[in-house]
């Protein structure tokens, strides 16, 4: 089963939930950090053994000697990544989505593929026995989805896969959520949390995925989130009130399933609930 932990608003507790849910499940779980622009699952579940890979994407390179300036590549490209002009051809690698179309339409064969670094992926085992795949986007790289897809390509389907998604509702989030069996939206009962939760719910509905909500710091703010979930028939899987010991353990980089008595049981109960809901739906 593939469970995506997402949210509209950032800082609601996605990573905290993802790492603790994975740690509670232990070696039955695989954790994918798909928040490649700001990965931090590794702070809570550092790898004790593993490997490191550089991930690249193919972008075109032009041989002006061969180019006949027909303009076909520029007409095909929907992203303005290749711009044929009268006497030269400009390439903007950061706009390229690596579809490969320009090579196909280039009759004189003036385009070659060259690889461009997207980022790195660390994978291996954490001390708790969790299989982890951590993506990290190259600083300066603008496009996260290709790297996110590479992280997901390393998914182990025999395990319970926990995916830590980026915040928001844009392309990287869609890339992380695609193909999920269940989405947990982590929110907080504040005006910002509520506003962004509604956007996230719309996104998950558009993708036709089953979902539930976890309300973090549930004793602050207003009842808007709770009322909205009831009205929209979205199950509230768990409400976690603010807890100083939790905040203290988190700030030290500790796993809550280890530092907070009863937390592991809460995570396992949450997992059972998700499994049950998924079978029931």
């Amino acid at each position: 089963m593939k469970i995506v932990i997402a949210s509209g608003k950032g800082g609601t507790g996605k990573t905290t939930l993802a790492v603790n849910l994975a740690a509670a499940l232990g070696n039955q779980a695989q954790l994918l950090d798909c928040d490649v622009e700001e990965p931090n699952a590794h702070l809570f579940l550092p790898l004790v053994q593993g490997q490191n890979e550089t991930i690249t994407a193919l972008v075109p390179e032009v041989d002006l000697e061969r180019c006949n300036f027909c303009g076909a590549c520029g007409q095909l490209c929907q992203f303005s990544a290749i711009v044929p002009l009268e006497q030269t051809v400009l390439i903007f690698p950061e706009m390229c989505h690596s579809c490969g179309g320009c090579y196909l339409v280039c009759e004189p064969g003036a385009l070659r593929e060259r690889s461009r670094e997207l980022g790195v992926i660390d994978s291996g085992l954490s001390q708790e026995g969790v299989y982890c795949v951590y993506g990290r986007l190259r600083v300066g790289e603008a496009m996260a989805p290709p790297l996110i897809r590479e992280v997901k390509a390393r998914m182990d389907h025999s395990r319970t896969v926990i995916i830590d998604a980026p915040p928001g509702t844009s392309c990287p989030v869609i890339a992380a959520m695609k193909g999920a069996d269940y989405v947990v939206l982590v929110t907080e009962p504040t005006p910002f949390g509520f506003h962004d939760l509604k956007l996230a719910v719309e996104t998950v509905r558009t993708m036709k995925l089953p979902m539930g909500v976890l309300i973090n710091r549930s004793d602050i703010g207003t009842a808007e989130v709770k009322n909205y979930c009831a009205q929209e028939a979205i199950p509230v899987l768990l409400s976690l009130p603010y807890s100083r010991p939790v905040a203290a353990a988190y700030s030290r980089g500790q796993l809550l399933v280890k530092a907070i008595p009863g937390f592991k049981e809460q995570m396992l109960a949450l997992f059972e609930q998700i499994s049950g809901r998924r079978q029931g739906s």
Partner: peptide, 9 residues
């Protein structure tokens, strides 16, 4: 994206 590039073209 690419509005500036297309306008330049």
């Amino acid at each position: 994206h690419g509005a500036g590039i297309q306008a330049a073209r």
